[in-house]
């Protein structure tokens, strides 16, 4: 990895088609800056994106990337990182991709704790299909498919992550690009699953608790009245799943034939 990488090296020559003022711009810029500032190179970076407005991120960024099927970005990222731990893996998605169709994978990715970063653009509405409610929409949110409100509780992704044993749980505001970049950078540096929920409208405030304090994190996350920005919880002793499983080398290089001792596999069946 060379040290002269600038964040614009992570930009592709495609022009984003997001709506003017969309939080996705700030979110993506922060990801690119954080990747550059942590010494990554586009050729050693793998971005996985889901479906939805957020899914276009892989197109507007320059790196190795896969734009997958709806809701399955996290399993793809898991496979990439385990197969080649030398790659920097960043998964990007939206609230629909991550907390609706992909909610099951989210919980398991959190508890599996593979060393990658998950950035979710949580604007609490479906943008690509033009304005239906999302899993994080509030109960009284009126949309074309919820003219009288959703009549259901919103998903609390931070609480899901904490309950699933998350080791890095953070929230940023896409409007605060400097703080957002810093938080994503910390998520990249975290040894394990770095989860950043990017709240698109403007949120409330910073907080001031010891990030390793689980109970303080819980109280803050369960506070439904406010949206906080910062790293809410971190397990500083976290070790990534692939490391715990003993994976140290990329799995890409294999011999030209069967492994040298492969006849031993046959002899096992005597």
């Amino acid at each position: 990895m060379s040290s002269d990488i600038r964040f614009t090296d992570f930009k592709s020559d495609e022009q984003p088609t997001w709506c003017p003022g969309c939080g996705d711009f700030g979110t993506m810029n922060g990801m690119m800056k954080a990747l550059a500032q942590t010494g990554n190179d586009p050729d050693d970076t793998f971005v996985v994106a889901g479906i939805g407005c957020s899914g276009k991120i892989g197109t507007y960024m320059h790196s190795y990337a896969l734009h997958g099927v709806h809701g399955r970005a996290l399993p793809v990222g898991t496979g990439v990182k385990i197969a080649n731990p030398e790659l920097e893996v960043m998964v990007a998605g939206g609230d629909g991709d991550g907390y609706s169709i992909g909610a099951g994978h989210f919980v398991h990715a959190v508890r599996r704790n593979v060393d990658m970063t998950y950035v979710v653009m949580d604007n609490r509405i479906y943008g690509l299909t033009k304005g239906q409610f999302s899993p994080t929409s509030r109960e009284d949110f009126e949309t074309s498919t919820s003219p009288d409100g959703t009549n259901q509780q919103p998903v609390n992704p931070l609480a899901l992550a904490l309950a699933a044993g998350g080791t890095f749980i953070a929230q940023s505001f896409s409007s605060d690009s400097q703080r957002h970049t810093e938080i994503v950078q910390e998520a990249i540096e975290h040894d394990g699953f770095g989860f950043v929920n990017v709240y698109s409208p403007v949120g409330d405030e910073e907080f001031d608790h010891d990030r390793t304090d689980y109970d303080a994190a819980k109280d803050l996350i369960m506070d439904r009245d406010k949206e906080y920005q910062g790293v809410i919880y971190q397990d500083e002793n976290s070790i990534g799943f692939e490391t715990r499983e003993g994976v140290t080398e990329p799995m890409t290089d294999i011999p030209d034939g069967a492994p040298d001792d492969a006849m031993d596999l046959v002899r096992e069946f005597y």
């Binding site: 793998f46 996985v48 190795y64 896969l66 997958g68 099927v69 399955r72 399993p75 793809v76 990222g77 898991t78 496979g79 990439v80 990182k81 385990i82 197969a83 080649n84 790659l87 099951g104 994978h105 398991h108 990329p250 799995m251 890409t252």
Partner: peptide, 19 residues
């Protein structure tokens, strides 16, 4: 994996990584 949806996507990710 947590289900077959995940299993095939993990395998896809690993394949894209070159394994």
């Amino acid at each position: 994996a947590e289900d077959e949806l995940s299993a095939v996507n993990m395998a896809l990710g690993a394949a894209r990584a070159g394994a």
